[in-house]
Design a protein around this nucleic acid. Structure first.
Lengths: 233, 233
DNA sequence: CCGAACAAAAAGTACGACTTTTATGTCACA
DNA sequence: TGTGACATAAAAGTCGTACTTTTTGTTCGG
């Protein structure tokens, strides 16, 4: 689940990345490549490549004569999808989910407003289609199907905004929505009010009403934040 | 300037990263490690480490029997500070600056609102201090000094928000502000209205007036966007 | 007590041999 | 002529070892 892919490299990378983001090694801990090579039973070459990647994520810092030092969480590249996945898989998943939801609540309304101005007819269609898909699957414990449409909807909004920085948050949103759904008690259907809001956002975008699209999306975001408060007090 | 640091690795990484993000290699281009090793006159070991890092940024993909394939811009990790720096150094700097400013305009107001709720006295002091610093250096072509305070101010807001995702955008904002200043004609002093707004934001945060802090920051953001329209029509 | 020479430790780099995967071309068979 | 099995080779992946470079801690002399 974490991050498969074949190859020794991936394996070691996942193991170390997960361990570090989980706080298993307190900041300042030093690791030696030789030791790691031995521990994972791979060559130093592989370990070095892994360390370089970890270094590019600012999870560790490698210095001569010292070793590989684990960096404090404050310097991690928390926007790296890989890092996000590791952290969501780890212990402080609730905290992480909250940070990301707050980020969403800032970005998505603005993105929706821009989408209303920039969306192509094709993108409008996609948006409407996914909103309708949400309606169709919003009742009868079809949460998994609903999730697919939900993710596709938000991704579509972000893409239609025409801003690449927004568009690239699609993966993040997907992770958050997935995490949220899988943390819910799976017997409850989604909030009907939220579903309606999504349909209305699609409408607003189609009608080029930027202000309304933004405001409606803001309401969705508020709902998501409140929901989070209920789950993790 | 781009990204110093010593070592063959850094050198090759910078060269390749810069070239790829500059669009020098169209997506789909395949590079072979042996060829690269020869071209940069380093060992295959070094090239492999570089490729691994590039791969973690989703700039390239390495496949057996095929080589290292350059990926389309849509899959790049555009939130990676390193990638941002490369792109800002390259040709489509204006586009990049605009994307990032739009992102700022979405995030910073919300961050300011949260800062009003969460800022520690220490953070309030820092905020005020930087705002005053901006005032002090806002006249008399002291743009470089002004920039330092401007960056520190926005960084302080993002940090005070208490949200780590926001906090980590400090570097991005720093890049944007720096880029903007260095692109301006360096004879104009900053807009006095903008300076005032910063002072007012500091006030609002100090007085725990979240709505006002948010609104004022939104005005700053609007100003930044308009300014961008003037520069890059 | 301080500074400079020194020694050791760990990462950085290089090279060469070997393994594994896989795209592609080939050949036989239908 | 088309199709599927098979062989081939190309390129990345992995490993081990030897050597270089930087950095730090220590020791020795002033």
């Amino acid at each position: 689940m974490t991050t498969q892919a074949q190859g020794l490299h991936s394996h070691v990378l996942a193991a170390l990345g997960l361990a570090i983001t989980a706080g298993e090694y307190p900041p300042g801990t030093v690791l030696r490549t030789d030791e790691l090579a031995q521990r994972f039973d791979v060559s130093r070459t592989v370990v070095r490549e892994v360390v370089r990647v970890l270094e590019s994520m600012h999870l560790v810092e490698s210095r001569r004569r010292v070793g590989v030092t684990v960096l404090p969480a404050a310097s991690w590249n928390v926007y790296d999808p890989q890092v996000i996945r590791w952290r969501l898989a780890g212990a402080d998943r609730p905290r992480q989910l909250r940070s990301l939801t707050v980020l969403r609540s800032a970005v998505e309304p603005v993105a929706a407003g821009l989408a209303a101005e920039n969306a192509t007819p094709e993108q409008c269609r996609e948006l409407t289609e996914q909103a309708l898909g949400m309606v169709a699957t919003s009742r009868g414990r079809r949460l998994e199907e609903y999730l697919v449409h939900d993710i596709a909807f938000h991704r579509a909004v972000l893409n239609a905004s025409g801003n690449e920085m927004f568009a690239r948050l699609g993966d993040v949103v997907a992770e958050v929505l997935t995490g949220r759904t899988h943390h819910h008690v799976m017997f409850e259907d989604p909030d009907p009010a939220a579903v309606t809001l999504h349909v209305q956002v699609a409408e607003a975008v189609r009608e080029r009403d930027a202000a309304r699209a933004e405001e409606l999306t803001r309401q969705i975001a508020v709902g998501a934040l409140q929901e989070l408060d209920v789950l993790a007090p």
